[in-house]
Simulated scan of single mutants.
Amino acid sequence: MVTVTVWNEYRHEKESEEVAAVYPDGIHATIAEGLRDAGYDVNTATLDEPEHGLSESVLDDTDVLAWWGHKAHGEVDDEIVDKVVQRVRDGMGLLVLHSGHYSKPFTRLMGTSCSLKWRDSGERERIWTVEPGHPIADGLPESFEVPRAEMYGERFDIPAPDELVFLSWFEGGEVFRSGCCYTRGKGRIFYFRPGHETFPIYEQPEIQTVLANAVDWAAPGSGPDPNFDNVAPLEDLD
């Protein structure tokens, strides 16, 4: 069984009555519940736990790490970031959610600022499935709506995705690359845009389907294991 660790700052829910009303047990708990219902072995970790809940043993036992962060990116210890990045390069999957685009692991792995335009006005978002044959799009319609969302708009300062699965359109007119796939080393990374803390987006069935599909896609598989060591020649050398 695939083991997932859902990481969350867990600050907004403690400091804002508005957010606590939407996610009384934390965003991580809602995401974890949806993934457990999909059949995964799911644990959670939060910023204020020792080692941010991401000890070496936890990371070693994690097949896919889901990361939600927003207001405390700078508080994540660089030593933990180093371990997360290395685990991804060694094969652990990483799902970067919503404002996690500014997280230290994601910006480190992308090598860019990961900046974007934004507007928090609770507008409608239409998510288009632009790569319907991709495994993360399995079971999803050509498009679906998030009734109320924070707007993210282009230019999104990321490397060109290896594969673009979803594209968002917003009521105010902007568009955004909202479902982006990458490979770094042996690890697969999926960035998924929806998930603002004041709206119950992670309770939406289509969103839960995307996350479950993304776990399947990002989980370590039986792919190639290239050899980067010093090697003997295949042919005789004079």
Rank of each mutant, 00 (worst) to 15 (best):
G223Q: 01
E171G: 00
M151C: 12
V81M: 04
G153V: 06
Y152D: 05
V19E: 05
Y202V: 05
D216Q: 11
P132H: 05
H52K: 12
D225R: 07
V19Y: 00
I201M: 00
A20Q: 13
I27V: 15
A160M: 09
P233Q: 03
L211G: 13
P224A: 14
H196V: 09
P233Y: 05
W118E: 06
P141W: 08
V58L: 06
P147H: 03
V96E: 07
H12E: 13
G122Y: 08
G133F: 03
G26V: 04
G69W: 02
L47M: 14
A29R: 06
L95R: 00
T198E: 10
E49R: 04
Q86D: 14
N230P: 02
L94T: 11
Q86M: 08
T112Q: 04
D238T: 00
F166P: 06
D157E: 15
V215M: 08
A72F: 09
L237R: 05
A66I: 14
G133L: 06
A20K: 13
T183Y: 00
G195W: 06
E13N: 06
D61Q: 15
L116F: 05
L109V: 12
G185P: 10
L116T: 02
V58T: 09
L97K: 07
K71V: 09
E123M: 06
V146E: 02
R108A: 14
A20N: 12
N227G: 10
L35E: 13
H134Y: 07
Y10T: 03
T209Y: 00
E17Y: 05
T5M: 07
H52F: 15
I27T: 11
F144A: 06
Q208A: 08
N8E: 15
K83Q: 12
P132C: 10
Y40F: 15
S16Q: 02
V81R: 01
D120E: 14
C114T: 09
F176E: 02
T30G: 03
Y182G: 02
E56Y: 01
D162N: 14
D90T: 00
P141D: 05
T183R: 14
S115E: 11
E142N: 00
C181S: 01
D90M: 07
G153Y: 02
S103W: 03
S55I: 07
A232T: 13
N230E: 13
N43V: 11
S103P: 11
S57K: 09
E18Y: 12
A149W: 04
I189F: 00
L54M: 10
P161V: 01
P200N: 09
S103D: 05
L167I: 03
D157L: 13
W128T: 09
G223K: 05
G187P: 05
P147T: 06
V64S: 04
G93K: 13
